[in-house]
């Protein structure tokens, strides 16, 4: 990251965690998707500062089993900061450290600079072939079944899960991979959206255009994330069996189990949370 010279140093904890990963790379140090540990370490070191900003309380991370696994959280907060915090948590707090391969929106490769930063740090396009190949190689996959519908939630819908896609469940069945449900609480309060301005989103080619309550006063500064405290709860792994190409209705029953589990984890955390920031 030539643009950020003072930040282009590797955090010693990140370095130590990367040393413990076992990676399959080609002669030049890349995997087929463009993950490159030398760059990833720097990017994770920057991400770590964002992680620290949200002072996450993490519970149940030991529930992540060895080998292939799908990490399935709720999605919120307009920007994918929840994914970033989960990825850093798995690198620094899981034992042994896990490199998370996040499935991102299909249009991320169209964004200059973002596409290279994402690819070097292990993010891939959310596509069944990518996901299956990475699971088959025993990776931990991070997938948000709510997609952009989830992260673009407005304030009145906060912490209510929207419809889940079925793709993650079919892949879990096909690759015989367990699902670890995750609840993220705190991201909804970091960037608030009162209203999704769809015409503006369409104009800018974005999936949604959040209108922040303080936009008239602060302008674009309103979108700087507030230092809400994040709570990450990792549930027990869920194992599903059955044909991956089953009828939609039957897959939906399994999807609902995961969705309900995450919703109840969120509700439980919200009930005991005393303050948004403390």
């Amino acid at each position: 990251m030539a643009l950020l010279p003072p930040l282009a140093t590797v955090d010693p904890e990140i370095e130590a965690a990367f040393q413990r990963l076992s990676l399959e790379l080609n002669e030049l140090g890349y995997d087929a998707w463009g993950f490159h540990p030398e760059k990833a370490k720097m990017l994770y070191s920057i991400a770590r500062r964002i992680f620290d900003y949200f002072r996450p309380r993490i519970e149940g991370i030991e529930n992540i089993p060895d080998g292939r696994v799908l990490l399935v959280p709720n999605h919120s907060g307009q920007l994918p900061l929840d994914g970033l915090v989960i990825a850093v948590a798995c690198m620094l707090r899981a034992d042994p450290p896990r490199l998370v391969r996040a499935m991102a929106e299909r249009w991320f490769p169209t964004l200059p600079f973002v596409n290279t930063a994402f690819s070097r740090s292990g993010v891939v396009v959310g596509d069944p072939v990518n996901c299956y190949n990475l699971l088959a190689a025993d990776n931990a996959i991070l997938v948000f079944p709510e997609g952009a519908r989830g992260s673009g939630k407005t304030w009145d819908h906060r912490y209510r899960l929207v419809k889940f896609g079925r793709g993650f469940m079919r892949l879990a069945l096909q690759a015989e991979a367990p699902i670890v449900p995750i609840s993220v609480v705190g991201a909804e309060e970091s960037i608030i959206s009162l209203y999704d301005a769809k015409p503006i989103a369409r104009m800018l080619g974005m999936p949604y255009a959040p209108i922040h309550p303080l936009l008239p006063i602060l302008g674009l500064l309103a979108y700087l994330p507030l230092p809400s405290r994040f709570y990450l709860d990792f549930g027990k792994p869920m194992y599903f069996e059955g044909p991956f190409d089953d009828e939609d209705d039957r897959v939906d029953i399994k999807v609902a189990k995961v969705r309900n589990t995450i919703q109840s984890m969120i509700d439980k955390r919200l009930a005991i949370r005393e303050s948004v920031f403390a």
Binding site: A32, P109, V124, D127, P128, V129, N130
Partner: peptide, 10 residues
């Protein structure tokens, strides 16, 4: 195959 942003790998 064509270069496309949604291309999976490989």
């Amino acid at each position: 195959y064509g270069a496309h942003h949604a291309n999976h790998i490989p």
